[in-house]
Amino acid sequence: MSNKLDPRIKRTLHVISDALISLMEEKGFDHITVRDITSRAEINRATFYLHYQDKYDLLDKFVDEMIHEFTAAFQLPPGFEINDFIKDSDTPPDSFIRQFEHIADHAKFYKVMLGANGLPGFSRRMEHVIRESLYHRTLIAQPHDNQVLMPRELVVRYVTSAHLGLIMYWLENNMPYTPIYMATQLIRLHVLGPTHLMKSNT
């Protein structure tokens, strides 16, 4: 939601989106009506139709907004260099931390959207955002395909799956760790790899 919106309108849009997610969690999007949403949000139908054409318009706008914020959280700063990304295996990049913080701030949305009553294809949209960003980072690390040890796309697909997998695990288990902890484990997987991390320190 735009920060330029009147605070009262922002509150209205917030209660509408909260009502949508709550209802989706209970019975799935297909079984929800506009009347259900307005009743749960405690607003009249005229107020709903001031902002949305129907429940599909609401869902599309809400999902687009969250994907935009998810993308922005993962965005690289201007003048980014690979040394800014990987300082060491225990220092996660700010973009990793921001992304987990964003998900924590909107945990119910992501849990519902990625769950059984969520939106088909939503995980693919998240995957696309992650994959595009990681692909860009590999180009910064090594722009020449003939200098990499394996096809770039295989590397990007592997780390994308790991990245999204950690996010989904975290949500499925009610976020038992902090965003910084999760971002740190993610960068350790990037730098050290799963086989190395399974080795005993003793």
Rank of each mutant, 00 (worst) to 15 (best):
S2P: 05
S2Y: 10
P7D: 04
P7N: 07
I9N: 09
K10W: 00
L13S: 06
H14D: 15
H14C: 10
I16M: 02
S17W: 00
S17D: 11
L20W: 03
I21C: 06
F29L: 09
F29H: 13
D30F: 07
H31F: 14
I32K: 01
T33G: 15
R35E: 09
S39I: 02
A41S: 06
E42P: 03
E42Q: 15
T47E: 00
Y49D: 01
H51G: 14
D54T: 08
D54I: 09
Y56L: 13
L59I: 03
L59K: 09
V63M: 12
D64H: 13
H68Q: 12
H68N: 13
F70M: 08
A72H: 06
L76F: 02
F80N: 01
I82H: 13
I82Y: 13
I82S: 08
N83H: 12
D84R: 07
D84E: 04
D88T: 05
S89F: 09
P93L: 08
P93F: 01
D94G: 09
D94C: 04
F96P: 01
R98V: 03
F100S: 11
F100A: 11
F100K: 05
H102C: 12
H102M: 12
Y110L: 03
V112I: 05
M113A: 06
M113L: 15
L114E: 02
G115W: 00
G115A: 05
A116K: 15
N117H: 14
N117G: 08
G118F: 01
G118C: 06
R124M: 11
R124P: 02
R125N: 14
E127Y: 03
V129L: 01
E132V: 03
L134V: 01
L134R: 06
Y135D: 09
T138Q: 02
Q142P: 00
Q147K: 14
Q147Y: 04
L149N: 14
L149P: 02
M150A: 13
R152F: 01
E153M: 08
V155T: 09
V155R: 11
V155K: 11
V159F: 15
T160Y: 07
S161E: 10
H163T: 12
L164W: 10
L166N: 13
I167S: 07
L171P: 00
N173W: 08
M175W: 02
P179F: 10
I180N: 12
M182V: 05
T184P: 03
Q185T: 08
Q185R: 14
Q185I: 10
H190R: 15
V191Y: 00
G193N: 07
T195F: 02
T195N: 10
L197Y: 02
L197K: 08
L197T: 00
K199E: 09
S200C: 05
T202A: 15
T202S: 14
